[in-house]
């Protein structure tokens, strides 16, 4: 089984785990109802490291997105939600020649194969599996802005929906994506895997007085589905 960089920290918090596409995923800490309520009032912290991650580099990456999705690539510094062969994707345009594609854990292999085959038709475009390269967390809740202003030295309030920046979070290089839930502000944060344990514990510490609570996969799904 695969475990994320925050697995041990979650174990220490009493998480109950379930298997998801070969991963041990923290499902519940207290109860989904309790976690949802706490996240709404404060900040919910979820580990999404099990998602698939593909790095794509090359000058023709915009053509690759168009070929894959039939739509233009998002602007540099933005992301778009797409669906390819039924699999939901989040395509983040990090730089003029660099994309990061996030998939659901179970869709990773299918999407990776499709992206690689499409890239092969476009000359000097290369795809690397970065699924193990990043620890990924979602921060969702009414007080998430107050939490991030403690840790991030740039102004995230100006970030539009699905806008992204690369900045320091607690002095760790991070990709920070504005990914609001239907009724709550939210950010998705990717940091190098080796910093995952540090970042998780730092978020727990920094958000303590803001009502930060770990949120398992069950509650996270419910927050995302709220309308």
């Amino acid at each position: 089984m695969r475990t994320s960089a925050m697995y041990r920290a979650q174990q220490a918090l009493g998480a109950r785990f379930r298997d998801d596409a070969g991963w041990k995923v923290a499902d519940v800490y207290t109860s989904p109802d309790d976690e949802v309520a706490r996240a709404r009032a404060g900040v919910g912290l979820s580990d999404l490291s099990a998602c698939g991650k593909l790095g794509v580099q090359g000058e023709a990456i915009e053509a690759l997105v168009t070929k894959l999705t039939g739509r233009p690539a998002p602007e540099v510094g933005a992301a778009s939600r797409e669906r390819v062969n039924g699999a939901p994707l989040l395509i983040a345009h990090l730089a003029a020649d660099e994309l990061l594609v996030l998939t659901a854990p179970g869709d990773h292999e299918i999407v990776a194969d499709l992206v690689a085959k499409t890239a092969d038709t476009l000359g000097c475009v290369h795809v690397t599996d970065l699924s193990a390269a990043f620890a990924v967390v979602d921060l969702v809740g009414s007080r998430v802005g107050a939490l991030l202003e403690r840790l991030v030295p740039i102004d995230l309030s100006a970030l539009p929906a699905l806008g992204l920046v690369q900045a320091e979070l607690a002095r760790v290089h991070a990709v920070i994506l504005r990914a609001d839930h239907p009724r709550l502000p939210a950010y998705r944060v990717l940091v190098p895997r080796e910093y995952g344990d540090f970042v998780w514990r730092t978020l727990m510490d920094a958000g303590h007085d803001l009502g930060l609570t770990p949120v398992g996969a069950a509650a996270h799904a419910r927050l995302g589905a709220e309308a």
């Binding site: 960089a5 403690r150 840790l151 607690a170 002095r171 760790v172 190098p192 080796e194 910093y195 995952g196 344990d197 540090f198 970042v199 730092t202 510490d205 920094a206």
Partner: peptide, 8 residues
Amino acid sequence: RFADPWKL
């Protein structure tokens, strides 16, 4: 606080 990240 948070000024000294560690890698594991």
